[in-house]
């Protein structure tokens, strides 16, 4: 299996990318700023720190997974590094999977860093340890799952379209995925059987990202129930597997001029 060396190398690439550090610094500054904002909104400190922290984590994480996810394959094709890899005893599928898991590792590490920063901000804001500081970790796990789904989607698009178009598609998928409950309502309430069938198919075909948004509930003191966490994890794993199978299917047939 060549997946592991390729994944580790991909992780090393992002670990040596200065842009990523700048982004992380920015997010952490934002989290620190949330403490100040929390001070202004008396009595709402915890809610504001969690809201702003987890939202920033989502937004920057999604941008990272889309843009780095697209670069995973398209950059290698563009600069010709793929020629070197394919001449070696490596399956194309192994290349795709290695690249994907490498970026997931990067996302995992940066998610942990961001969640730790939010926890730190809460400890400071609350002047000690509190249950709220643990509540945010299940929500952060859900955000991480959302990021891995978006990475798989971005990777899939980059296997058959240009980087700019892939970014556009992936952003659209993100927006629609976040509106998936509306799609479901639409599927259930439309009068036309055809519309119902199409929106139901879309509901299952597009990633259901609203599932992974537990920020507001967390900010209001709820803990994501383990059943929900488990269900979402299973859903994410299945959806990612399907997206990667599609990516491999396309990538295996592709020619590199």
């Amino acid at each position: 299996m060549k997946i592991i060396p390729i994944a580790l190398n991909t992780f090393r690439e992002s670990a040596r990318d200065r842009a990523l550090y700048n982004l992380m610094v920015f997010v952490i500054l934002l989290i620190i700023a949330s403490v100040v904002m929390g001070r202004i909104a008396v009595g709402q400190e915890v809610k504001i720190v969690i809201d702003l922290g987890l939202s920033a984590m989502t937004v920057f994480g999604v941008l990272m997974s889309i843009f780095l996810g697209i670069g995973l394959v398209s950059k290698e094709i563009e600069n010709g590094a793929i020629a070197n890899i394919l001449s070696k005893p490596v399956r194309r599928t192994e290349f795709i999977l290695g690249k994907y898991f490498g970026l997931c590792l990067t996302l995992f590490v940066s998610s942990v860093v961001m969640a730790a920063a939010i926890t730190g901000a809460l400890i400071y804001a609350q002047g000690g340890s509190d249950a709220a500081q643990w509540r945010l970790w299940p929500a952060a796990w859900l955000i991480f799952l959302e990021l891995t789904i978006m990475t798989a989607v971005a990777l899939l698009f980059s296997c058959f379209s240009s980087p700019a178009l892939s970014a556009l598609f992936a952003l659209l998928i993100f927006l629609i995925g976040r509106w998936s409950p509306d799609l479901k309502l639409f599927a259930e309430t439309s009068n036309s059987a055809a519309v119902r069938a199409v929106s139901r198919a879309l509901y299952h075909l597009l990633p259901n990202l609203a599932n992974f948004n537990y920020i507001n509930e967390t900010a209001h003191g709820e803990v994501a129930p383990w059943r929900m966490i488990a269900g979402n994890t299973v859903y994410a794993v299945c959806y990612i597997a399907a997206a990667l199978a599609a990516a491999a299917l396309i990538f295996n047939r592709r020619n590199f001029k």
Binding site: P5, R12, N79, G80, A81, N84, I85, S87
Partner: peptide, 27 residues
């Protein structure tokens, strides 16, 4: 087999040694 591409681009964030070790792992 071994192959030297026409336009050799290799991962520029690696050192020459790391790059060769990585290629070794792929083989």
């Amino acid at each position: 087999i071994g192959y030297l591409p026409e336009r050799p681009y290799f991962y520029h964030y690696l050192t020459a040694r790391e790059f060769l070790v990585f290629c070794g792992a792929l083989c």
